[in-house]
Amino acid sequence: MAANTRDIRRRIKSVKNTSQITKAMQMVAAAKMRKAQSAALAGRPYAALLNRVLQSVAVRSQDGGHPLLEARDVAKHLVVVVSTDKGLCGALNTNLLREAAKFDPAKTVFVAVGRRAMQWLVRNQRTVLADFQLKDSMSFLDARMVSRFAMEKFLTGEVDKVSVLFTDFINTLRQVPKEKVVLPISSLAVTVGVEGSIDDAVVDVKDGGLEYIFEPSQGEVLDAVLPHYVHFEVYQMILDSRASEHSARMVAMKSATDNAKQLIKDLTLEYNKIRQASITTELLEITTAQMALG
């Protein structure tokens, strides 16, 4: 009897400790989430406008006018998998890596961003070209290392298509794994207007009424815009993944804390029941003894 109550007490204590830890992690994730979310959302008007600028440049240039625009037959596909470094964020990485498993291992090479992706790729014996570890406070520059690497592989012809597998941030409760093709930039029409907050007064380029003048020259502007566009796209996708990660972790930790609280409640109830039972038995024993004596 006494041993049992002591066991329960010990369990309550340990569950309480766990809940304190998950509560702390929830707080940290919430703070990081707010930061990551605002970073991800702040870049959207820029992305939308960049999209528009690029579209108007690309429409004017003939197809295949630039190596980054050139669509080739896909013999090798490069997939950049953006995962988290740490676990404890619900089903986020599981969902992401399930998508990663769908690519044909013979035709696909991978670049890992984040420790979880790397571990999974190695365990499943996929070809990994590079592994990037990005800091928690990632700058545009850090993200550029990733996109620069992918762009080099594409330009040298080692791969014919580059896409990024990331977790799209929809809202705090919903994050969806998504694959987006970044190279070649022929799939422009698809991405344009997706995040369009600036869609007013779009110049009708098809009318031929408006001819852009480029300075210094169209080629030079295109040369500058296209790589910048790719860098920014990748950066934005990594930011989205970050926002998703922290949101998912906060939600996971919140439910862990809630579960721990529920468990403590159940255990306390159990404990009190046993305690009450033992008191009742003791009382009964005393009364019986007294009656026997009396």
Binding site: V53, S56, V57, Y212, I213, F214, E215, P216, A224
Partner: peptide, 19 residues
């Protein structure tokens, strides 16, 4: 501050793109 020098833009400017 365009790459080729400062430029002023007024309404009804010709469509233009620069760094």
């Amino acid at each position: 501050p365009a790459v080729e020098g400062e430029m002023g833009v007024l309404p009804m400017h010709v469509p233009f793109m620069t760094q």
